[in-house]
Simulated assay, not measured.
Amino acid sequence: MCVSYWLRAVMSHVSTDSVRLVSGSGLCSGSVQIWDQSWTWLCEEALDLLGAEVLCRELGCGAPSILQGAVSPLGVQTFYCEGHESALRDCPRSGSWNCSSGAAVNLTCSEPLRLVGGASRCAGPVEVKHRGEWRRGANYDLWVGWDLGATAAVCRELDCGSAVSGEERGGFPESRVWIISSDCVKKSTVTECVTHSSSSSSSSSRGLDVVCSDLLNRPIISLSVLDGASEALPQGVRVMPGSKFRVKCSVEPQFPGGSFQLLSPTVNLTQNHTLPAVNHSAHFLFSDTGPAHKGNYTCVYLLQVFDHAFSSQSHALQLYVGDSDSHLIFRVLVVLLSIVTIVLLLFYCCKVRARGGARETPEVELELDVFSSS
Rank of each mutant, 00 (worst) to 15 (best):
M1F: 10
M1A: 08
S4Y: 04
W6N: 05
L7P: 00
L7Y: 07
A9I: 02
A9F: 05
V10H: 00
S12W: 12
T16K: 00
R20N: 09
L21P: 04
V22N: 01
V22Q: 02
S31V: 08
V32M: 05
V32I: 08
Q33P: 09
I34P: 02
I34T: 06
S38I: 04
W39S: 02
T40D: 07
W41D: 03
W41M: 04
A46Q: 01
D48M: 07
V54N: 02
V54C: 09
E58P: 12
G60V: 02
G60Y: 00
A70M: 03
V71R: 12
Q77P: 02
T78E: 06
F79L: 02
C81T: 07
E85V: 04
C91H: 00
G95W: 01
G95L: 00
S100V: 10
S101E: 14
V105T: 06
E111A: 14
L113P: 02
L115V: 03
V116I: 13
G117S: 11
S120K: 04
V128S: 06
G132V: 03
W134T: 05
R136A: 09
D141A: 03
L142R: 13
W146D: 00
V154E: 10
W178A: 01
I180T: 07
I180G: 07
D183W: 08
S188D: 06
S188H: 11
T189S: 15
V190I: 13
C193G: 10
S213A: 05
V225Y: 03
V225W: 07
G228F: 12
A229Y: 01
Q235V: 12
Q235D: 15
R246E: 13
V247C: 00
V247F: 03
C249L: 10
E252T: 08
F255R: 09
G257P: 14
S259F: 08
L263G: 04
S264M: 09
T266F: 02
V267H: 11
N279T: 05
S287T: 15
G290P: 01
K294N: 12
G295P: 11
Y297T: 12
T298Q: 15
C299R: 01
V305N: 11
F306I: 08
F310L: 06
S312L: 00
H315E: 13
Q318K: 15
D323M: 13
L328G: 14
F330N: 11
V332G: 02
V334I: 14
L336M: 07
T341D: 12
C350L: 15
R353F: 11
G356K: 09
A358P: 02
R359W: 14
E360R: 15
E365T: 05
V370C: 06
V370I: 12
F371W: 13
S372I: 14
